[in-house]
Amino acid sequence: MTASLPTAREPGTAYRIGTVCLGNICRSPMAATVLGELVDRAGLADRVEVSSCGTGGWHVGQPMDERAASTLRAADYDGSDHRAQQLGPGWLAYDLLLAMDEDNLAGVHALAGEVDPARVRLFRDFDPVGPGEVPDPYYGGPQGFADVLAMVERTGVAIVAALERM
């Protein structure tokens, strides 16, 4: 699937992408870590910033879930700097917010009210396998985290390809 990215809100500034999940300790930091690394490898780090947040605030300031961090480390990604953040009005200035599932997409819309649908999307809208949700691995075992990693890697590659075309 080839989805297009919205243009930058402010030409000449870094293109800002935020990934959004519930608590900002599993899916969205995994996605932001992978996407950030792919952006860096593509030589786009000076033009693109990637961050993550959660619609809920109960983990603010905490590091990534150890199972998510371990899954990333095993694949040579470093998420050790991550500290959970909560979605707030400042995030609405991002060029693109990518929610991990429909509930978090609804959370962004609840905060934003009327919002450009091109700027608030599901992360997997860019997945070459097809659109859908990134399932929450929190209550499952290691395979759930591995599945999330596979989804965010292939989707991240597609997002970076779209960024390179901008």
Rank of each mutant, 00 (worst) to 15 (best):
G130L: 11
G132K: 05
C53Q: 00
E10P: 00
W91Y: 14
G43F: 09
Y138C: 06
P6W: 01
M151E: 08
E133C: 01
A42T: 07
G12F: 04
P128L: 06
M1T: 15
L163N: 04
F123S: 10
E49K: 05
V115Y: 12
V148I: 13
W58H: 13
P11H: 13
P135G: 09
Y77G: 00
L98T: 11
L92S: 03
Y139V: 12
Q86V: 09
A106I: 01
L5I: 07
D147E: 12
P131N: 12
L72Y: 00
L22F: 10
P6T: 08
A3D: 03
Y94P: 00
D81Y: 07
E49S: 13
D125H: 05
T19E: 03
S28D: 00
V129K: 13
I159N: 01
V39D: 02
E10R: 10
P11G: 08
Y15T: 09
V148P: 06
E102Y: 04
A161K: 11
A14V: 15
V115H: 12
C26Y: 02
D81W: 14
L96F: 00
T19D: 02
S51P: 00
D127M: 05
E153S: 03
D76W: 11
V157A: 09
A162F: 13
T19N: 01
G12R: 08
S80N: 13
V129G: 14
P128E: 08
A75L: 05
M64R: 05
D76T: 10
P128C: 11
R27K: 15
R47H: 14
E66H: 12
L35Q: 02
V60Q: 13
P63V: 08
G57Y: 01
R83L: 08
A158R: 08
R41D: 07
G107H: 09
G54Q: 10
L35C: 09
S52Y: 00
M1P: 14
L87A: 04
V129Q: 14
D147H: 10
D46A: 15
P131M: 09
